[in-house]
């Protein structure tokens, strides 16, 4: 079992400078804590900086002000203690499913036997047993995304980041994989941070939903979700929470939709 990570984001700000244009405040004084083993979702409109924040946490970008700490230590660069699942599954097309997952274990320092069993366990965890030797083009979109989740978890990270992992899937597969992610999160006990703009997905999966807004990218609301798992999407409390988050995003469905720049 992975040791769940405790993530602290403290007063993080980031600006982009494009030539000939005013500075863009992508993130402005963003701060929140993620308890070990928690499932926290960041929702917000396009351009609110939620994906940028994930890039900072994973360590692909270290040009920011403020601090991001994992288990009390400032994160530096990328590390195997932080895994990520991208919106595109990003499986390497020339590697089979098990080789793709094995790629995340290249520098784990584990023995061949430990690697093989981690690969087998995680393929089983995401329900892809029997497809070990399939190439990515032989998998459906949903299966590829499961494989990407298995790759993200195989080296037992302290925290797993999910960057709109279900955004490119059809509605039915999406609902199904939401249930799968919920099950996997409970089974692995790993801290997960999800970025999405699907509010229902956020309420379905999370202990907490952090609502962000654009210009500048900032946190506008932090909503605790205390409903028992597995959650009923039709329950009145579920819907009330959904409505509250949509309202915080300025997207309350009871009002006529306000025209908003994409």
């Amino acid at each position: 079992m992975a040791t769940p990570g405790h993530l602290e984001i403290r007063n993080v700000s980031k600006t982009y400078a494009l030539p000939g244009r005013p500075l863009v405040n992508v993130l402005s004084h963003v701060g929140f804590d993620v308890d070990p083993g928690a499932f926290v979702t960041i929702v917000g409109p396009s351009g609110c900086g939620k994906s940028t924040l994930l890039r900072l946490i994973i360590g692909l970008d270290d040009d920011y002000r403020g601090d991001i700490l994992l288990n009390g230590r400032r994160i530096v660069g990328t590390a195997l203690s932080r895994g990520i699942v991208f919106q595109d599954h990003r499986l390497l097309p020339w590697l089979t499913l098990q080789q793709n997952i094995g790629l995340s274990l290249e520098n784990s320092g584990w023995s061949a036997k430990e690697k093989a069993s981690a690969i087998r366990d995680h393929i089983g965890l995401v329900g892809l047993s029997g497809f070990e030797k399939a190439y990515p083009h032989e998998l459906s979109g949903g299966m590829a995304q499961r494989a990407a989740i298995a790759r993200g978890l195989a080296n037992r990270p302290e925290i797993l980041l999910l960057d709109e992992p279900l955004g490119a899937l059809d509605a039915l597969t999406r609902v199904h994989l939401q249930a799968e992610i919920q099950r996997i999160w409970e089974a692995e006990g790993v801290t997960m941070i999800l970025v999405t703009h699907d509010v229902e997905e956020a309420v379905f999966l999370s202990n907490r939903v952090v609502v962000m807004s654009a210009n500048p990218g900032r946190i506008v609301e932090d909503v605790a979700v205390d409903l028992p798992f597995p959650r009923d999407r039709a329950h009145v409390d579920f819907i009330a929470l959904k409505r509250r988050i949509l309202a915080a995003m300025g997207e309350d469905e009871r009002r006529p939709a306000s025209p908003r720049a994409a």
């Binding site: 892809l128 032989e138 459906s140 979109g141 499961r146």
Partner: peptide
Amino acid sequence: AVEAGTVDRP
């Protein structure tokens, strides 16, 4: 076969 409960069809 895909494990039980999967909607993705191989």
